[in-house]
């Protein structure tokens, strides 16, 4: 065996484009040693509701997903938002050959969320003092960020003001 020769390789690309003026088209494509698949969703703004979905899925050892198109249609009307994963999973099915399908729909949705996140982050100043203030204010505005990652962890500099305002915690 040669360590130079790969056993497995995966490429996944998720891209988001604006369509119909304000709506967003998110496409997730995956190509790996076994899989070739693509999922496309259109999300209506500002409701963030999935209004179109389509895709194809080919896999080397899994059976084709039965009635892929009609199965995908089940997620129409679902809103991209917190808690969406359990909804998508519940609607698409939890069989093994649906795992990747569910993941790709989720990745499409994450693409939408990150598109909107990028718009917020573009407002961050470049200088260190301004940047610190920007993110410190962000966690004060959105308490959900508090202790959700290392950057906004309990007792760290970016949450210090928030904790001080709340007497040592963020509750």
């Amino acid at each position: 065996m040669s360590s130079n020769i790969l056993n497995f390789s995966l490429n996944r690309c998720t891209s988001v484009d604006k369509v119909n003026g304000t709506d967003l088209l998110s496409v997730c494509r995956v190509r790996d040693t076994f899989t070739d698949a693509e999922i496309r969703i259109v999300v209506k703004m500002p409701d963030m509701e999935i209004v179109e979905i389509s895709g194809h899925f080919r896999h080397a050892y899994l059976d084709a997903v039965e009635d892929l198109d009609s199965r995908l249609q089940k997620v129409l009307g679902v809103r991209v938002g917190t808690g969406m994963l359990k909804i998508i999973k519940g609607l698409l099915g939890e069989e093994e050959n649906c795992d990747q399908l569910v993941y790709m729909v989720e990745e499409c949705c994450h693409g939408i969320i990150l598109t909107l996140t990028k718009k917020v982050l573009l407002k961050a100043p470049d200088d260190e003092v301004g940047k610190f203030a920007f993110y410190s204010n962000m966690v004060k505005k959105s308490i959900r960020l508090y202790d959700r990652c290392a950057g906004f962890g309990k007792g760290t500099p970016l949450v210090a003001e928030l904790e001080a305002e709340n007497g040592g915690g963020a509750a």
């Binding site: 056993n7 996944r12 891209s15």
Partner: peptide, 29 residues
């Protein structure tokens, strides 16, 4: 394009018992 995320993962043999895994995530943010 408004946003793009690319992920690449490769898996190779390190030795008979072990795999080495390398992953890259690069996106607009």
């Amino acid at each position: 394009v408004e946003f793009m995320r690319n992920k690449m993962v490769d898996v190779a043999h390190l030795d008979a018992e072990t795999l080495s895994v390398h992953g890259v995530l690069t996106d607009s943010i």
